[in-house]
Design a protein around this nucleic acid. Structure first.
Length: 488
RNA sequence: GCUCCGGUAGUGUAGACCGGUCAAUCAUGACGGACUCUCACUCCGUCGACUGGGGUUCAAAUCCCCACCGGAGCACCA
């Protein structure tokens, strides 16, 4: 038994590979919104496996429902761009809605083989028969008859819901989920890419079965919710004499700290003005993480460490935060930001220029210089008020020491600049000059308003650390500075 | 109701296929301490788990059965 901890993803089963065949994987998103953290897992894990085996990573858009999960034209591009950002550029991009004729061709092949039939049962009628394990009257239609009905479907002789093409499996299969499933249905809604060109659309089970074969996919890795899809698709593979790829599944992921955010819930929230957009920091989208300043490598690391277990999990953002901090901390310059500022008037202080390192572990990076006039009114965070009671001594970080003389209004007196006060129990507080810049920090938990030292204006698009507060990404500088909260 | 999958510390994960070396790995977290002009970083220490019950066996986290818990499918969604 070996005892070594696994690094990276567990190895793939390569036993089914033919000589010269490349490991081929795909992610098959529905472009009805931008990628979420869950989609990122699929992108990263599949791409990483392709990378491990010098294989092929395909991005295939399963955009075959123009009605209920209507695709968004912009989302196709978002997926590709954000996969690139994550360090997982697809080797090939395929769009299902481009390839309907191909699916039709194989539908007809299956009809000819007597393995597919057009069913015009009422939804409920079929359901009841199926539950009872009984065939519907259409099941025994001859291929020629089915072909005629199929052509009628294509020609528009049926309205939506009036006819479907079913794959013949085993109507008495012990698992009702596998009995004679629907391969095509009629959808008259306009498709954003193909308009009204097609009115007969494949279901995921069928479209995906075709594409995985045509694209030479060797390994399918997807969510557990699609476990039975494989069993359904094997029927088709068997009828056509194809070999089904290796499949593995990961369990359901519950994202701790975020509510239940399906694509449709997010979309509704954005339209309703509850969220500012798909990159609102309160949303678990890749776009939001990007805007918050996360390192793609950190996201990749956590996804790879999670692996592909079938266990249902509760994922804590703390894990991502920790992983990101490892990368962000050495890079981020330090600044003071005072949330919910309170003025502190200091008596007897000389005018000086405070010097604080941009990074405590890297003095070579230089210093922030913050001029502070004599007897200044500076700003401190309201949350530090408890340590600033009359009589208490505080160290204004990188500035000087102050003895508090009055709490209301807050006032103190200058008592020198000897750092030794810290040994005597003085608390450290950070501060901002009266002429600092207003900053609004937006984060998953809400907004913070405050003042930062003017130097942050030189950090547009960078992640910086607001000392004793959090890491943030400076997003916009336009009068007030807008910062996105990364993590503590 | 039918069917399928899973259950290792607060969280994620290794070990499970091929029982022993598992008084169970690593990470994160919590707590304590060192360092530090940050509540960050770094370092040290502590805490904390095999869902329960039977069975097989000299030996079970690992194999079998049952129960319980969690999740999924039974859609003209993906």
């Amino acid at each position: 038994m070996k005892r070594e901890a696994r690094k990276g993803l567990p190895p793939l089963d390569l036993s089914g590979l033919k000589p010269g065949q490349k490991v081929t994987l795909r992610i098959a998103p529905n472009p009805n919104g931008p990628p979420s953290l869950g989609n990122a897992r699929g992108i990263i894990v599949n791409a990483e496996y392709a990378r491990m085996y010098d294989g092929v990573f395909i991005m295939r858009f399963d955009d075959t429902d123009p009605a209920i999960k209507k695709p968004m034209l912009e989302a196709y591009q978002w997926y590709v761009e954000q996969a690139k950002w994550l360090g997982c550029p697809p080797d090939k991009v395929v769009i299902a809605s481009d390839r309907l004729p191909l699916y039709y061709e194989y539908a007809e092949k299956l009809i000819e083989l007597g393995k597919a039939y057009v069913c015009t049962c009422e939804n409920e009628t079929f359901h009841d028969l199926k539950e009872a394990g009984k065939p519907c009257p259409h099941r025994e239609t001859e291929p020629a008859g089915n072909m005629g009905q199929w052509k009628k479907m294509l020609a528009g002789d049926f309205a939506g819901k009036e006819a479907v093409l079913r794959i013949k499996t085993d109507i008495r299969h012990r698992d009702p989920a596998l009995r004679d499933w629907v391969a095509f249905r009629i959808v008259t809604e306009e498709h954003p890419r193909t308009g009204h060109t097609y009115r007969v659309w494949p279901m995921l089970d069928f479209e995906s079965a075709m594409e995985d074969h045509f694209l030479g996919v060797t390994h399918i890795i997807r969510g557990k919710d699609l476990m039975k899809t494989a069993d359904k698709q094997r029927y088709v593979y068997q009828y056509l004499g194809w070999e089904y790829p290796h499949v593995s599944h990961w369990g359901r992921v519950r994202l701790l700290g975020f509510g239940k955010f399906s694509t449709s819930v997010m979309k509704k929230g954005i339209q309703g003005g509850e969220f500012t957009g798909w990159d609102d920091p309160r949303l678990p989208t890749v776009a939001a993480l990007k805007r918050r300043g996360f390192e793609p490598e950190a996201i990749r690391n956590v996804m790879i460490n999670m692996g592909v277990t079938e266990t249902d999990i509760e994922f804590s953002m703390d894990t991502l935060y920790a992983e990101n901090r490892k990368i962000a901390d050495p890079k981020a310059n330090r600044y003071f930001f005072v949330a919910d500022p309170v003025a502190l008037r200091i008596d007897g202080a000389p005018g000086i220029v405070a010097k604080a390192p941009l990074h405590p572990q890297d003095p070579g990076r230089g210093y922030r210089e913050i001029p502070v006039p004599a007897d200044p009114g500076i700003l401190v965070a309201r949350s530090d008020l408890p340590v600033m009671q009359p009589g208490s001594i505080v160290r204004l970080k990188d500035l000087y020491n102050v003895k508090i003389t009055c709490a209301e209004p807050l006032r103190g007196e200058y008592i020198g600049n000897d750092i030794a006060v810290l040994k005597q129990g003085a608390k450290i507080v950070h501060w901002a000059p009266a002429d600092g810049v207003p900053v609004r920090v937006v984060g998953p938990e809400g907004e913070y308003h405050g003042i930062a030292e003017p130097g942050v204006k030189a950090e547009l698009n960078n992640v910086v650390q607001f000392e004793r507060f959090a890491f943030v990404r400076i997003d916009t500088i336009d009068g007030v500075v807008l910062a996105y909260y990364t993590h503590p």
